[in-house]
Simulated assay, not measured.
Amino acid sequence: MKGGVRKFGAADRRLLPEGRLAGPMPWVIAIMMFLTVLAAAAGLGLGTAARTLDAGIGTRITVQIVEANPDRREAEAEAALARLETLPGIVTLRRIPDAELAGLLEPWLGAGGGAEVDLPMPAMIDAELSAEAHGRIDEVRAAVAEVAPSARVDDNAQWLAPLSRLISALRWLAGGLVLLMIGATAATVVLAARAALDTHRATIEVLHLMGATDIQVARLFQRRIALDALFGGFVGLLAAAAVLLLIGDRVGKLGSELLGSAGLPAGAWAVLVALPVGGVLLAMLVARVTILRALGRFL
């Protein structure tokens, strides 16, 4: 039987005569891996964006002094700033300069941010709270209101919540797409294995007459399918990586902090590179199970 195994190694190339470039399976797997990598990259990028937003904005508040009288507005701003400095859990505290506010308004109001028409701008204070202090934000609001009646305390996490829910939903969608692609890849391997068995039924019967077991025959198919999956997997990975790098370059040129936060760290790229390896292992497992079950039925 050992001599038979050596003969089967030579027959391996003829059992699935289609070359890896000619048969449809490696190209189908390449397309599946391309879509899988893109979906996984989207999920990982959105996860990075969610963490970045939460770390950068999630515990921040903005205090706006909307008093129309400039003298009273300035007095309330100074009082609110002094009051916030005495509260526990204030990590950072900054009065936003009027010039910076004008720059923020310039895209909508033109150069000068509306100063040419004497448009009153609120005094603004940016503060970052600790997680504990953010949980007591009502106390912060009450403390600011005592010294600045016209102040309005905006919780950045409140307006960030809809965006966070959208990002979470998109991450679940990306995860679902990855699972669908994995299932479609497994189904492709099953169909390819069954088609190969049907095509080479006579050859398999001869191998059995020569003393080959079902496991030995399955290994022949399993190895060729694994090579097809390896070729298709890395072709799909390279195509997806090219697309991701192109998109990353375009996003970088936009200069958007929100879009830029969805970049892929090194760990995420390691996960993407591991996907073709996982695809090969999945193809080998599915092919082995499919072939052994089929051989048990028709021989």
Rank of each mutant, 00 (worst) to 15 (best):
V5Q: 14
V5I: 12
K7Y: 11
G9D: 10
A10G: 13
D12P: 00
M25Q: 06
V28R: 01
A40C: 11
A40W: 03
L44V: 11
T48C: 08
G58S: 05
R60S: 06
T62A: 09
V66K: 10
V66G: 04
A68L: 11
A68W: 05
P70R: 03
R72A: 09
L81Y: 14
I90L: 10
T92D: 13
R95G: 08
L105T: 06
E116R: 13
L119F: 10
A123H: 06
E132P: 07
E132K: 13
G135V: 09
G135I: 09
R141N: 05
R141L: 04
A148L: 06
S150H: 13
V153P: 09
N156G: 08
R165D: 13
I167G: 01
A184N: 05
T185M: 14
L191D: 07
A193R: 01
L197Y: 05
T199R: 15
R201I: 08
A212E: 02
V217Q: 02
L220W: 02
G232L: 08
V235R: 06
L237T: 05
A239D: 06
A239Q: 07
V251E: 09
E257K: 08
L258F: 14
L259D: 00
A270F: 01
L272G: 00
P276V: 04
V277G: 10
G278I: 04
M284I: 01
R288K: 03
I291L: 11
